[in-house]
Write a protein that binds this DNA or RNA. Structure first.
Lengths: 113, 113
DNA sequence: CGCAAGGTTCGACCACTGTCAAACTTCGAT
DNA sequence: ATCGAAGTTTGACAGTGGTCGAACCTTGCG
């Protein structure tokens, strides 16, 4: 059913929310978790797509999946498949336009982890 | 040390943490709550001390007390008594120095409540 | 084909946190 | 000295969300 967004191939491309539908509440809920902030920080530093496995996290795979899901729903990352790997990238510009200064402030303010 | 900001009269001045002891985690946990963000936003706009009662919140008094406590512990506000009223003010400059851009980004990104 | 690598889904569990009512404290005014 | 206004403290409760293991699904490859 329903040919997700676009390409038409398989719906192996998960649904990404429009940035205008993202609320500050949702974003802060996403960023309050240290594991998720770590993901964001790594993507911020990497400046390129990273597979889930590339970012090593102190949690199980299923938990990691959960975190990536939350970040995607909050408009922070974009995901797509490359083989069996799921690639992740920050939605920098879009996010910056929607919440100016926020990403930087959060990524910069590192002190734990 | 430290001399809790000011008068020295009674210790009706609650303990305020040193800004250097505040972590990003703590700050985000404080700012993720809509009621607390509302408090911060009002203080941000007011630019002067406000008593707890002045800021009307959709919660009971005891809950309000809790929220102010969290904000104080997170280094976001400074409190002192004036009669039976407890006055609150943002720790603007200090906070800005410790977490540049964060306060503005959060207060600016209003969309809910 | 069959198998391993990389992720996902599904329940279940547990800790944390926001919430309130009730009783209490402190100060100012009557 | 008494009363009310403004907050605080305490205890209980409920919802949420991060966590895991186990079973499952895709894709790439030999």
């Amino acid at each position: 059913m329903t040919a997700a967004t676009g390409t038409g191939r398989r719906d192996r491309v998960p649904p990404h929310p429009d940035m205008r539908d993202i609320g500050l509440q949702q974003v802060l809920e996403a960023l309050v978790d240290p594991v998720r902030r770590r993901i964001v920080a790594e993507l911020y530093a990497a400046r390129e797509d990273l597979s889930c496995g590339t970012i090593d996290l102190p949690v199980s795979k299923s938990t990691a999946t959960h975190h990536f899901h939350v970040l995607r729903e909050a408009g922070l990352i974009r995901q797509h498949y490359a083989g069996t790997s799921r690639m992740n990238a920050l939605r920098r510009e879009e996010f910056e336009e929607r919440f100016p200064g926020l990403l930087r402030a959060v990524v910069t303010g590192h002190d734990e982890g």
